[in-house]
Design a protein around this nucleic acid. Structure first.
Lengths: 141, 141
DNA sequence: CTAGAACCATTCGAATTGCAATCATTCGAG
DNA sequence: CTCGAATGATTGCAATTCGAATGGTTCTAG
């Protein structure tokens, strides 16, 4: 029983390490690809997650970071002309983040760069599907 | 074919988001549990990964961070009396990080806290095994 | 209708992290 | 053997990120 518990502790540790490692690996991948477009890693993640107009809080949630950080990243993207803050329809305290034409085009190029050589590429479609299901089960609570 | 490509792009984006989200979730979990022992999140990760005496570079690799950051974290743990830098047997430029008795005891308590309520707990043993195999296949290259 | 709680975005200060440079040690080609 | 390249750890600096506090807006109980 003690041995069983030990293996459980060890398995949990290894899994955490693997997940963290893969996350860092993905971040590094985004960093290099985004750099070729003049973006930082966080900006790259933000662009990746900006599938459409959304609120700043929603972007922060998709980026898994604090809203204050999303504000910072959005500032930079706005300065570079890829993003605009529009008044949110139906909620005056919120702001609608929308990509400019230049931003939309840049996003397409970024997505090409990201998926053409993704760290997840070695996995088959079936494996990716299995991984997604497992992750969803772990993340939602 | 364009549609197929689109779904591939979307699947990759979603997977990256899930992995990043789970990593942040694990980090938050470590942060709260480590805080009850007077440790920061990084210190908690370091303690979790210190399965035995190891070099600073090896610790950094396990933590998926830069050696400079591992130095910083090790400094703190050393100040708190949980860790010692010993000369490395057989390599004078390297240093052997070893836990003190207090560190070993603290590590045991931390591991209990971490696994008793792990974010990965909702997954069965079989699912955890499957997840581990998929992650290993993705991480190693 | 109104007062307080909740929510969205932002700002500011502090802590964490990465990156480049440096020193000491070790390895390897010749 | 020896010199240059490579490795391990550390330092200093810059950039990123978080956490708490703030201002404006919306929601809701009464």
């Amino acid at each position: 029983m003690t041995d069983e518990h030990e293996t459980q502790v060890q398995a949990d540790r290894e899994l955490c390490g693997l997940i963290n490692g893969l996350a860092k690996q993905i971040e590094a991948h985004v960093r290099t690809r985004a750099a070729t477009l003049g973006l930082t890693a966080s900006q790259g993640v933000a662009m990746r997650e900006l599938t459409g107009p959304m609120t700043l809080r929603e972007l922060a949630e998709r980026m898994s970071c604090e809203p204050s950080n999303a504000t910072f990243v959005a500032d930079r993207l706005e300065e570079q002309g890829y993003l605009e803050r529009h008044p949110h329809p139906g909620n005056r305290r919120a702001k609608h983040l929308v990509l400019t034409p230049a931003g939309t085009e840049l996003r397409q190029r970024l997505l090409e760069l990201l998926t053409s050589d993704s760290p997840l590429a070695p996995l088959s479609s079936e494996e990716q599907g299995a991984l997604q299901r497992l992750l969803v089960r772990a993340v939602v609570r």
